[in-house]
């Protein structure tokens, strides 16, 4: 906090003491607002819904972690084929990224859930397959939509990262007699991942902010639980404010975790 204060204080040479006084007042105002929300709002529902909120939180985190990991695994080949692949892989990959990034996630989610969900029962092969018990639930569709979306956005990042690795490094690898596969495994992929890492933090926060959409297809995540609370208690603001606070804390934790890992990766200072 002191580093931020001194950084903002530097340009106009304002005395640091005054800056801190006004910050203290702002923090007090914020605390007073929170205190008023707690004192004047109705929170008696909180203990009753505590366990459900916890399982909703776990569902949100599972959606985030699952879709980010799967999406990233898809994004690497998506980015790679757009840079170096043959035309019959490059064009579909580009089309996939453009279509997914050009349409709203909510629409994709509803297309998968309502569209595919209404097609599947009419196909007997699917009804008899081992996947059927899962396909009758909502969460696989939510996970699939979130994964596809993350893959498309991160695939575009990976394309830039692969294209941005200096050609000299790849030529050096060739000159040492590495095969194409070895060059990719030892030089190209690690260097591209390294370049893509800083954007990963922002993309993951965006992904966290997309997860509440799965509640619209009846997946009971954090937002789904809060919607239930709102329907059953007829409260408008209290559940939503709690929800906003929880997401802010989650975002802060994500940012801090990524910053910790970013600081551990050696980079050349600029």
């Amino acid at each position: 906090m002191s580093a931020v204060a001194s950084a903002t204080a530097a340009p106009d040479q304002a005395p640091t003491r005054r800056l801190q006084t006004h910050r203290v007042i702002l923090v007090l105002v914020a605390l007073a607002l929170i205190g008023m929300a707690i004192a004047f709002g109705r929170w008696d529902w909180l203990p009753r819904y505590g366990p459900r909120l916890w399982s909703g939180l776990l569902m949100t985190l599972a959606m985030l972690a699952g879709s980010a990991c799967l999406g990233f695994l898809l994004a690497v080949p998506l980015g790679l084929v757009q840079v170096t692949g043959p035309v019959w892989l490059k064009v579909p990959a580009q089309a996939f990224c453009t279509v997914i990034r050009g349409t709203p996630l909510l629409l994709q989610l509803w297309l998968l859930y309502y569209g595919l969900g209404s097609l599947f029962p009419s196909i007997p092969e699917i009804r008899t397959s081992f996947l059927w018990p899962y396909l009758r639930e909502a969460w696989p569709y939510g996970l699939a939509a979130l994964t596809i979306s993350f893959a498309a956005y991160e695939g575009e990042v990976m394309r830039g990262a692969f294209a941005g690795v200096p050609a000299g490094e790849l030529q050096a690898a060739r000159a040492f007699g590495m095969s194409r596969g070895q060059t990719l495994r030892r030089i190209w992929l690690p260097r591209a991942l390294h370049r893509a890492l800083p954007t990963l933090s922002g993309e993951t926060v965006l992904q966290l902010k997309s997860t509440p959409l799965v509640a619209t297809i009846t997946v009971v995540d954090l937002y789904g639980v809060i919607s239930r609370v709102r329907q059953e208690t007829y409260l408008v603001y209290e559940p939503l404010l709690l929800l906003a606070a929880i997401y802010m804390i989650l975002t802060a934790i994500l940012v801090l975790v990524f910053r910790f890992f970013e600081n551990r990766i050696p980079t050349r200072g600029h």
């Binding site: 902010k209 959409l213 929800l243």
Partner: peptide, 8 residues
């Protein structure tokens, strides 16, 4: 930027 658009 920290709270999901849907909730905002």
């Amino acid at each position: 930027r920290a709270v999901p658009e849907l909730i905002l």
